[in-house]
Design a protein around this nucleic acid. Structure first.
Length: 594
RNA sequence: GUGCCCGUAGCUCAGCUGGAUAGAGCGUCGGUCUCCGAAGCCGAAGGUCUCGAGUUCGAAUCUCGACGGGCACACCA
């Protein structure tokens, strides 16, 4: 990577400058501050720049400019050790920046690298094969998914893709809360509706789920089984009808998530924890490790000793286990499955539970740092500018399925993937629909399709508008195959010199910008994975598409000069590849035509 | 009341471990297709980075405080 090359160049210059006693009181040849190479906003400041002298000023008790000059002298000596024409020149400017002007060697190498590695370009070893479990969505099987679930789902999916791309071994899991009071409640509600739908009298539970959420699901049961269960007592009918409805809802959620391109490796049922006795055995584990006590007939976790703000009940007075106890059993199981890292993606309204769960893991003797909870902030839905509160009670929720229907999978994914989880999102349905054609997702896809189109056109005959003659195709399919082979040949990367030799500064500028962007992709993947912010990849893809469009505006790919055409086709080929790789991470399709 | 998150253009959001003149999209106004896809490109307008202190060569970025918004504070799940 070019930045790494430059940063190690500056590092060596620093060493030499220290040896030459040019940096005042600094005697350690190891640079005390990280050497960061950055892209200047102003193009007049070169292709890349280093501001390390400014950070060293205090330590060296010298002016930043003097330091930069000292480093510059050493870089001059080191220059011959670099590959031919990798660095064209560098300048020392006030207040102490070192600005680099790139030659062609590294840039050419970057294009060849993209094509050489293809679908794997940008893959990283950051994860080093570590096993990660990403648990997300985990919605209750008591109703449809809403837009908040959608955000959680898209974020989790993108993060999983990203981590996997960065070298982690990722499993994706959906935890089904199919046990306990809420599922009993679901049963009572569904049975009441079932009776009603069969013309019987029934009292709908007052604190139950809104009827309109459930009636369609229950209707499916009614349609299939007619009135054959109407005479069952509530304690049998509830669980039976509730169970049937739960399966329908779950399947419904699965189908919807699949429509969003989300698939889970495991659907983990809470019921299995209870049936296998894992909840009971987690109490024995708590007992072994201490940090628990009894009070007024309840069994407590002394969470205050473990970083929580108050103690938590694990087993209630009546003997029932709490949500935290069940969750502890679930998460202990995750540890035992051997994951190096466990990521939970929760809605921010659950943030209060984080210290409790982490405390429980500590109490069980586990490394709580392996468990990381990412909180996604709320999605504010509006329609025509009117805020729609997502209250389940009032039943005003706009369902995720409606949004996907209206806006489309790719746009929904991009929209929800783009922003960082700690920021709330304002999602106006009317605007989302209206702007769906100018949606960033379309813009990126358009750039991809345009690359494909150019590559296709290279193989087609063309019409000369002046003479009305039909020109034969410039390249044959066989030519294309051979070109692709040579583009990916690292030893032949000098063929891309033709991108920069011509006199038109504007074209050179935009091509260079495009190549620099392609070259930055692997570093971007690593950074995004490190920060666990897949939104960065979405924005990167947008920037790359933008760079392509700007290049395309000022320059033709197919020209009279065959070697230039070849080089530019190679650049387009590489751009298409990186667009596809980036889109793949955020789970947006990369169409060849639109 | 306590804890967590947020506050950047009219709206939606970027801004990398502090760096050069704070950036995009949408919306508004104007320009641009005899030429590989105009779902594009170019330009204009729009900012006290909520406010106030502090840290330092230098703050949208770090610290503290205020204000504003959201969320959470169960032997519920």
């Amino acid at each position: 990577m070019i930045k790494d090359n430059l940063s190690s160049l500056v590092e060596r210059a620093f060493e030499e400058a220290v040896k030459a006693n040019e940096l005042g009181p600094i005697e350690d040849p190891k640079c005390p501050v990280p050497i960061v190479i950055e892209e200047p906003k102003n193009p007049e400041h070169g292709d890349l720049a280093c501001g390390v002298s400014l950070k060293l000023a205090g330590l060296a008790r010298m002016s930043p400019l003097k330091i930069a000059e000292a480093l510059g002298r050493q870089i001059d000596f080191l220059l011959p050790s670099l590959p031919h024409d990798s660095l064209r020149r560098f300048d020392i400017v006030a207040p102490g920046f070192i600005n680099f002007q790139l030659g062609t060697a590294w840039l050419n190498q970057a294009i060849a690298q993209v094509i050489h590695q293809g679908d794997d370009y940008g893959r990283a070893h950051l994860g080093d094969g570590k096993k990660v479990l990403v648990e997300y969505v985990s919605a209750n099987p008591t109703g449809e998914l809403h837009i908040g679930h959608g955000r959680n789902a898209v974020f989790g999916s993108c993060l999983s893709n990203l981590l996997s791309y960065a070298g982690y071994k990722v499993d994706q899991e959906f935890y089904i809360n199919d046990y306990g009071e809420q599922i009993n409640q679901l049963g009572r509600c569904c049975f009441a509706l079932y009776l009603k739908q069969n013309g019987r009298e029934a009292d709908y539970p007052q604190e139950g789920y809104p009827e309109e959420y459930l009636s369609d699901f229950v209707q499916q049961v009614t349609d299939q089984y007619k009135d054959q269960y109407v005479d069952l007592p509530i304690d049998q009918g509830g669980p039976l009808i509730g169970g049937l409805v739960k399966d329908i809802i779950l399947q419904n959620q699965k189908d919807l998530l699949e429509r969003l391109g989300i698939t889970f490796d495991t659907w983990f049922s809470e019921t299995t924890l209870h049936k296998n006795g894992e909840v009971e055995s987690v109490f024995r584990e708590f007992e072994k490790h201490g940090h628990t006590f009894e009070n007024e007939g309840a069994y407590w976790l002394r969470a205050t000793e473990l970083g929580d703000e108050r103690d938590r009940v694990l087993r209630k007075q009546g003997g029932a286990t709490t949500y935290l106890a069940n969750d502890s059993a679930y998460h202990l199981g995750k540890y035992r499955r051997g994951y190096d890292l466990m990521i939970n993606i929760w809605g921010a309204d659950h943030h209060g539970q984080v210290p409790g769960l982490k405390g429980a893991m500590k109490a069980l003797g586990q490394d709580a740092d392996k468990l990381q909870v990412i909180l996604t902030q709320i999605v504010n839905l509006s329609r025509d500018g009117q805020i729609v509160r997502m209250s389940k009670r009032k039943g005003t929720v706009v369902m995720l399925s409606e949004v996907v229907d209206e806006v489309g999978r790719d746009a929904v994914r991009y929209y929800l993937a783009e922003s960082n989880p700690q920021n709330s999102i304002n999602f106006d349905l009317e605007i989302a629909k209206k702007s769906s054609k100018e949606n960033p997702a379309f813009y990126i896809q358009y750039a991809h399709a345009r690359c494909c189109s150019i590559l296709r056109r290279a193989l087609e005959e063309s019409l000369d508008t002046e003479s009305q003659n039909i020109n034969p195709p410039i390249f044959s399919a066989k030519d294309m195959t051979e070109m692709q082979k040579s583009w990916g040949d690292l030893a032949q990367s000098a063929q891309f010199d033709d991108l920069y030799d011509k006199q038109d500064n504007q074209i050179v500028f935009h091509q260079k910008a495009l190549v620099k962007r392609l070259e930055a992709f692997p570093a971007e993947v690593i950074e995004a994975a490190r920060l666990m912010l897949p939104g960065r990849i979405a924005r990167y893809a947008y920037d790359l598409a933008n760079d392509l469009q700007k290049f395309y505006e000022v320059s033709r790919v197919m020209t009279d000069d065959l070697s230039v055409s070849k080089a530019r086709l190679g650049l387009i080929f590489a751009t298409r590849q990186v667009l596809a790789n980036a889109l793949g991470i955020i789970g947006v399709s990369a169409p060849e035509r639109m």
